[in-house]
Amino acid sequence: MTATPTTHATAPTTSATAADPAVNATAALALGDDALVLSHRLGEWAGHAPVLEEEVALANIALDLLGQARVLLSLVGDEDELAFLREERSFRNLQLVEQPNGDFACTIARQFYFSVHQHLLYRQLAAGDGPFAGLAGKAVKEVAYHQDHAEHWIVRLGDGTAESHERMQRACDALWRFTGEMFQPVDGLEVDPMALEALWLERVTEVLERATLTVPSGARTGAWAAGAGRQGLHTESFGRMLAEMQHLHRSHPGASW
């Protein structure tokens, strides 16, 4: 596995938007791409949710994440150039957030794993005095809701019917291997990944047990899952996601929307 350079060079910065020199572009892109890609996946649910309240809730989470993504990407360059004109290999998001929606249990498991992590991370960033403190301070309240929403569903589905229990367990198991990547160090993020991971495991274990689910036991640091997304190595479905997302923008070079 070859890591591509994780510096400013990976992102087009030709736009007029001045990048903040205090901001580490690697870190901003990592966090921004996580939010952008997960928001996109959640947006795919529109019109397909199992109940009307979830149409509202999933859109709400998608909108929060999109708002975060726009702030983060704008720290690095022009948000639309970064979102619509980068190739797959230049995206720095976790593989977890690009995983297809699957059934509602898969979407909830993905959200749960990510939101618990994002909440812990943003709480730490908000408490510090680094370049992300302001953004994280605002976002942490949104993320607390995302986590709460996901945890309620983990518990309801885990402890609901036999079918929902089975689906929830399967979803938690299937996405488990993508969770190790969240705790790989990211250049420019002043947090202790190991401490973060311990807190994450503690919370995840607590909620899964409350949901009468079994904490998955598989590997979380396989060759392709551990740190790969952060280095621009993604899973196959991500290319198709980008093709759809970028098609219209790329079809009209230089146009304003």
Partner: peptide, 29 residues
């Protein structure tokens, strides 16, 4: 919601995407 949600994943700018998602969400509301 359906004919508009049809374009959420293809919205040509992030600003338009946010506006469209919020609109489709309003319709659910």
């Amino acid at each position: 919601m359906q004919p508009e949600a049809n374009w959420i994943t293809r919205a040509p700018s992030l600003r338009r995407k946010a506006i469209l998602m919020a609109k489709v969400q309003d319709e659910a509301g």
